[in-house]
């Protein structure tokens, strides 16, 4: 394995983008996954808050109207190669907020699914997904990073 591939496999910086929703997934990522019980770091995934440092962008939540521009901006800030992991049902299909509507018919305030906005590499469904599944999702994004030129 080349040095490039080894280095990319051995150090992954993940960044979390909260994009609205109920923040159940955010807490599962930021707190449960980093907690000593699950400990993301032992799998060589380091958590960061800086898009310039990140490789993997974890997006959770419906894309709220005001967060549309920041999401595009932060995605463009991440230097290539990069992978996007969508956590939870919200970025995948809008969850109840998009599909369980009453009289209003169409909820125009949310912009899920995430595929329409930025390319998504891994989808982890669940409301919220278990921390083990999120971990697996982040790790599934690694081959794309490794194979990139």
């Amino acid at each position: 394995m080349s040095l490039k591939a080894r280095s990319r496999r051995n150090a992954i910086h993940a960044m979390l983008f909260y994009s609205g929703g109920c923040n159940g997934c955010d807490i599962e990522v930021a707190n449960a996954l980093l907690s000593p019980r699950y400990d993301l770091e032992q799998y060589k995934v380091l958590f960061t808050w800086n898009p310039r440092e990140a490789d993997v962008l974890i997006v959770s939540g419906i894309i709220a109207w005001q967060l549309l521009e920041p999401l595009k901006k932060i995605y463009s800030m991440i230097p290539n190669p990069k992978a996007v992991v969508a956590i939870g049902s919200c970025p995948i299909n809008g969850n109840v907020y998009k599909n369980l509507v009453g009289d209003i018919g169409v909820n125009e305030d949310i912009f899920a699914p995430l595929d329409n906005i930025i390319p998504v590499d891994v989808k982890v469904p669940g409301c919220p997904p278990r921390p083990e599944d999120i971990l697996e999702g982040v790790v599934k994004g690694v081959p794309k990073l490794v194979e990139a030129p």
């Binding site: 909260y18 994009s19 609205g20 929703g21 109920c22 923040n23 159940g24 997934c25 955010d26 807490i27 939540g61 419906i62 709220a64 109207w65 005001q66 967060l67 969850n95 109840v96 907020y97 369980l100 509507v101 009453g102 009289d103 209003i104 909820n107 305030d109 949310i110 409301c127 919220p128």
Partner: peptide, 27 residues
């Protein structure tokens, strides 16, 4: 920032289906 229009979603839903949304107001 995270506006979802959640109160509007409830309008006209049967009560038992609405409880699913009520739970997802906050995680």
């Amino acid at each position: 920032v995270a506006y979802r229009g959640i109160e509007k979603l409830f309008e006209g839903l049967p009560i038992e289906r609405a409880l699913v949304i009520a739970e997802k107001v906050c995680g």
